Computed example of a mutant assay.
Amino acid sequence: MAETGYGQRVTTTVTTSTTVQTNIRFDPSYVKTIPGILKIVQAVASLVGFICIQFSYQNNAGKGVYFSWIAMIAFWFTGILLGFYLFHIVEKFYKIPWLKIEFVFTALWTVLLFIAAILAVTVHDNPHSAAAFFGFTATLAYAIDAYLKWRAVQAGGLAQGSRVVSQQTASVTSPQRVGY
C-alpha cells in the first residue's frame, strides 16, 4: 500500500493466471499461424536440402556429410516439435520451458545451417547448389523463428495456452482531519 497524498492510499494487486488445456487433441489450425508456417518451411527446406545432397556424386565428402547431418537433425527435431504443437502435447507439459528450448535450438541451427549452406556453395555441382538454396531458406526461417522465440521468452509467454496478467488498483480516501 502506498500513500499518494494527504489521506489517500492506493492498493495495487497484480494477478497472473495460466490457462491451459491438458488434454491431447488434434488442432490443424496451428499450421496457419506464423510459428506453424515457419516450422513447415524449416522441415521441408531441410528435407529437400538433404535429398539434393544425396543426389550429388560428392555426397560422401566432408561438406556433403556435414550438410546431411545438420539438415536431418533439423528435419527430425522440427518435425517432432510440429507434431507436439499439432496435438497440443506442448500445452499438456506446459511446465517444461519449451520456448527457451526452441530458442536455443533455432538460434544454434541458424548458425549451423548457414555454415552448411556456405560449404555447399563451395562444391561446384548442381545438387550442392540446390541444397545450398534450401539451406539458406531454412537458415532464414530458423533466424526468424529464433527472434520470435527470444521475444516470447522476454515477454514471459507460454508456448501454447495463455497467461493472463491483470492489475487491479483501488484508492481509499480517508476523511480529512481538522487541525486544532
Rank of each mutant, 00 (worst) to 15 (best):
A2K: 05
G5S: 15
G5H: 12
Y6W: 14
G7E: 08
G7F: 01
T11V: 13
T13Y: 13
T15V: 10
T16G: 04
V20W: 04
V20F: 07
V20C: 07
Q21W: 00
T22K: 11
F26G: 10
P28F: 09
Y30N: 11
V31Y: 06
K32M: 12
P35Q: 12
I37H: 04
I37M: 14
I37K: 03
K39S: 06
V41E: 02
V41Q: 02
S46I: 03
S46N: 11
L47C: 05
G49D: 11
I51V: 15
Q54C: 09
K63H: 05
V65C: 05
V65P: 00
Y66C: 02
Y66R: 11
I73K: 03
I73M: 13
A74Q: 03
F75W: 06
W76S: 13
T78D: 07
I80V: 11
G83D: 00
G83P: 01
Y85K: 06
Y85V: 00
Y85R: 08
L86I: 00
L86G: 00
F87W: 14
V90C: 12
K92Q: 10
K92G: 07
K95L: 15
I96H: 06
W98A: 01
L99N: 14
L99P: 05
K100Y: 11
I101P: 06
I101E: 03
E102D: 15
F105S: 00
T106L: 08
T106P: 01
W109P: 01
W109T: 02
T110R: 03
T110D: 08
V111H: 04
L112S: 14
L113E: 08
L119S: 00
L119G: 08
A120D: 11
A120M: 04
V121Q: 15
T122D: 14
V123Q: 09
H128S: 11
F133N: 01
G135R: 03
A138Y: 03
L140A: 14
D145T: 04
L148C: 05
W150Y: 13
A152W: 03
A155I: 00
A155C: 04
A159Q: 10
A159N: 08
V164I: 11
Q167W: 05
Q168T: 12
Q168W: 05
T169I: 15
A170K: 14
V172L: 15
V172E: 15
R177E: 09
V178W: 06
V178R: 10
Y180C: 00
Y180H: 06
